[in-house]
């Protein structure tokens, strides 16, 4: 059934006779033309990357960041309508801080995804609002540290807490990656992609075997791969210039010490170089890494 001309697509929160909300589907269209954004989850941490199309020479290079930090160890990147992305990001920050205020501890990423998913979903329920024109990728690392309640005095027994079990099934922090769609639907991912180049990006992500338990990708490899994938996904819109933005989150004993941050300048440059080189390599040979610097 087509949407146009039926009248069922003119208002949000209205079902068509076959049970669709067209306004949400149209919001997805806004995302499909946005810059490509991806997230990679490895055992060692999470990488977020985005393709920032340079719409004007007059833009200040290296500014207008698109990947934001919502809590110390959580980042968010959105594709689609940029101002909507800012709205969602600021909601994410509010959720993180209100959680901290209630529970005196950082919000687990699963809960943050759930809260944001619920928020986005609420914008599909009423004709007085429009859905979010963004898909958001949320990456983070739930801290494995034995941190106390914020503001508590004292540390309990010096001998440590009694009866703690060393059961590997007990979750003690770790990486997390979620993607939230305009409908409010969200899933956890090993590798997520959205925006214009998502198809190509997904194909590349699948090659990384991220869901295999013996995936050997290090966090740095993931950074290089993320950069490469953004470059691959950009191939279809080669005429437009773009800037690559990269952030990462590692464990406490990793390079970012459990924080979400932009990758250092040197690593960003290395990743860009690696990406460009592997694209050139693609033309002749699949062999990407072994060339001289």
């Amino acid at each position: 059934m087509t949407s146009i001309g039926t009248g069922y697509d003119l208002s949000n929160s209205v079902f068509s006779p076959d049970g669709r909300n067209f306004q949400v589907e149209y919001a997805v269209k806004a995302v499909e033309s946005g810059g490509t954004c991806i997230g990679i989850r490895t055992k060692h941490g999470v990488v977020l990357a985005c393709e920032k199309i340079i719409s004007s020479k007059l833009l200040k290079p290296g500014c207008n960041k698109r990947i934001s930090t919502v809590d110390r160890s959580a980042g968010i990147v959105t594709s689609g309508l940029l101002p909507d992305g800012r709205h969602l990001t600021s909601r994410g920050r509010d959720e993180a801080s209100s959680w901290r205020q209630t529970y005196k501890a950082p919000i687990p990423l699963s809960s943050l995804a759930s809260r944001l998913g619920g928020y986005v979903q609420a914008y599909t329920l009423y004709s007085s609002v429009r859905p979010f024109g963004v898909t958001a990728i949320l990456g983070g690392w739930d801290s494995e540290a034995e941190s106390g309640v914020d503001g508590q005095v004292g540390n309990g027994p010096a001998a440590g807490a009694g009866g703690k079990v060393d059961d590997p099934s007990v979750k003690r922090g770790g990486p997390a990656l979620y993607m939230i769609e305009p409908s409010g639907l969200y899933w956890g991912y090993y590798g997520a992609a959205t925006g214009k180049g998502r198809q190509a990006a997904k194909a590349e992500l699948e090659k990384l075997d991220l869901n295999s338990p013996d995936c050997a990708l290090s966090l740095k490899d993931a950074v290089l791969e993320a950069a490469r994938i953004i470059y691959v996904a950009h191939e279809d819109s080669k005429d437009k210039e773009f800037e690559l933005e990269l952030t990462w989150i590692s464990a406490l004993d990793g390079p970012t010490k459990g924080r979400h941050e932009h990758v250092p300048k040197e690593l960003l440059e290395e990743a860009e170089k690696h990406a460009k080189k592997s694209l050139e390599g693609d033309d002749e040979d699949e062999d990407d890494d072994e060339m001289e610097e």
């Binding site: 106390g148 309990g156 010096a158 807490a161 703690k164 079990v165 007990v170």
Partner: peptide, 23 residues
Amino acid sequence: GYDKRHGGSVYSIPLGGSLHKQS
């Protein structure tokens, strides 16, 4: 309380509403 992640823990909250983790 007891939970699998932290094991047992004891907190005291006296009159003013401060929070003390204790043995």
